[in-house]
Structure formats: C-alpha cells, structure tokens
C-alpha cells in the first residue's frame, strides 16, 4: 500500500466531516430525525402526508450548497471519470440498493455508527467491503 501524499487532505476532510457531523447533530436534536440522504430523498417517492415539505427543503439545501459556496469562493475540483453508461448503471444500483439496505453513507455510516447501531455497523462494513472490491476489480483487474 502506498499513500498518495499529494492528494491527502486530512485537515480539509476532518473539517468537512465536522460540518457533516454538525448537520447530523442538528437534525436529530431539533427535528428528531436521522440525516440519511437516501431515506430522505427516497421518501419523496412514496409521499406521506405532512412529510413532503421538510424532505424537499432538506434536498434543496443540499442542492443549493454549491451556489452558497460560490458566494465566497470558486468551487473545489470535481472530477467524474465514469462515462455516461457507467453512471446510469451506478445510479440505478445505488438508488435501488440504498432503499433495500435502508441507508447509505450518511444514514448508516455517519448517524448509525454515531449511535452504535449494530445494523448500521454491519451495513457500513458491507458497503465499504464491496466498494473496495469493486474499485480493485475495475482498476486493477479489468482496467477501467
């Protein structure tokens, strides 16, 4: 294993993580809910009464984050190497499976581990495992 020191951003990543933690903390302390993105977004596709506006506003806040960022600074680098067919397949897989698995990196990885939920710890280990394996296969065996 070699560490790519030129790309390593421990302080920025830690600060961003703290901001994400603050958001997760605010949502449970004020709204009494788990800040899980796949659940919040997916819930809009099976709308329950009184449930639509807060979900829409949460998603709007996330989507508008780059616009808010642009007030102060140019956007950070964003590089998407995957081509369109792969993006469509990956999007479908992420959409279906996060709903079946009841969560993603935010709901299980951040909130679930923060509250030491056994289900979320298992879920996080599972998606980290296949994430590592998928990138290994794609980059080192298939050579995408």
């Amino acid at each position: 294993m070699t560490i790519d020191m030129s790309s390593f951003t421990p302080w920025a990543s830690l600060s961003g993580g703290v901001l994400i933690g603050i958001a997760a903390a605010m949502f449970i302390l004020l709204n009494g809910r788990i800040a899980g993105i796949s659940g919040i977004l997916g819930g809009l596709l099976n709308p329950q009464k009184g449930d639509i506006l807060w979900r829409t506003l949460f998603v709007a806040g996330m989507v508008l984050a780059p616009a808010a960022w642009l007030i102060a600074a140019p956007l950070p680098e964003m590089q998407i190497d995957a081509g369109y067919p792969l993006l469509i397949i990956a999007g479908l897989v992420v959409g279906i499976s996060t709903r079946y698995g009841s969560g993603c990196t935010s709901g299980h990885g951040v909130c679930g581990i923060s509250r030491l939920s056994p289900r979320s710890i298992v879920a996080t280990l599972a998606f980290m495992f296949t994430g590592f394996v998928t990138v290994y296969v794609a980059r080192h065996l298939v050579g995408i």
Binding site: I37, S38, L41, V59, M62, V63, I80, D81, A82, L86, L87, I89, A90, G91, L92, V93, V94, I96, S97, T98, R99, Y100, G101, S102, G103, C104, T105, S106, H108, R119, V122, A123, T124, A126, F127, M128, F129, T130, G131, F132, V133, T134, V135, A138
Partner: peptide, 23 residues
Amino acid sequence: LIMGSLGFGIGWGLAGFCPGPAL
C-alpha cells in the same frame, strides 16, 4: 440490509458517487 448494503458498495465503487455527494 446486507444484500442492499453490499449492492450499494458496488454502485458506489463504479462511479464514486453516493447519494449525498451526488445531490
């Protein structure tokens, strides 16, 4: 839970996007 999470990791590894960052 387990199959869904295993599947999510595959989709995440294919493009590098999970739901929050994608939004």
